[in-house]
Amino acid sequence: MSALEEQIRSAARQYLENGDVSVVIGYERGPKGKVRPAFVHQADDAERLVWSPECNLNLVTYLHNYKHSPRRGVPVPRVAVVVRPCDARAVNLLLHEQQIKRENVKVIGVTCAGSEVDGELRQACTVCQERVPVIYDVLVEPEQPVEVPEAQDDYGDVAEMESWTPGERLEYWAKEFDRCIRCYACRQACPGCYCFECVAEQVFPHWTSIALELPEKYFFHVMRAFHLAGRCVGCDACEVVCPMDIPLSKLNRMLAKEVEALFGYHTGDDPETLPPLATFSPEERLRL
């Protein structure tokens, strides 16, 4: 058991013993050895919690399940959640969008050395400069400080695609969206996607058909990317959960790059700054 795991467990145990929270959301190992989200309700169960680079989802998504009172007269549950630095930005996002209250959430921040998908370090993690979450109540630290990679994110992959012709890009996305089965795993895994009724499923107004052709899939993915413009925290959970391995993070990274270049905004730095599409500057004239 690593030092990180021990700290996560003891934080969880303490929260549950003191009655600070009713559930701790972390990771456990399933019977076949796969890492998966775990919900710990009893202090004794805290031993189930694990930490490893395979923990690549964004558990902040689950906070949406705990943001309402379950019954009249029962208070909103208090929850503790284990987060990586990118997930922690989603906590700030939800705080800013008034989805959760700070006093109802305990954040167990983990000093992150990058997460893996299928045994390989995620591409975003190889250039991530962030080791400590922007928001936490307990910081889980390793014995040795984690090194920050020298390479900074230059959005090289996005820039390369931007050098293609529109036809080539359409062909690329048509090929990728071709596999999409519209299972909406990307949407469900995303902490920023919490509409009561998604545009993709709305009947009135009827935005898009339920058909499974390129125009419908294009609409869904572009719509989702646009709704996350300036809101995406770059956790890549959408891409990780996709059963068809569609490189959805490319869409989000492209928008993150533009948002940074145009508005100098980085999602989730703090819960106060207005996101770029919720504000404006009267002087600016953007290329249209």
Binding site: M161, E162, W173, L251, M254, E258, L262, R285, L288
Partner: peptide, 27 residues
């Protein structure tokens, strides 16, 4: 002003996904 910001991003998103951004004209 809000429209300007939204369309600035939508233009680039269309362009990136292979639909010529010239098809969406804002003035």
């Amino acid at each position: 002003y809000f429209a300007q910001r939204r369309y600035a991003l939508m233009h680039r998103l269309l362009e990136f996904t292979g639909v010529e951004s010239e098809r969406l004209f804002v003035d």
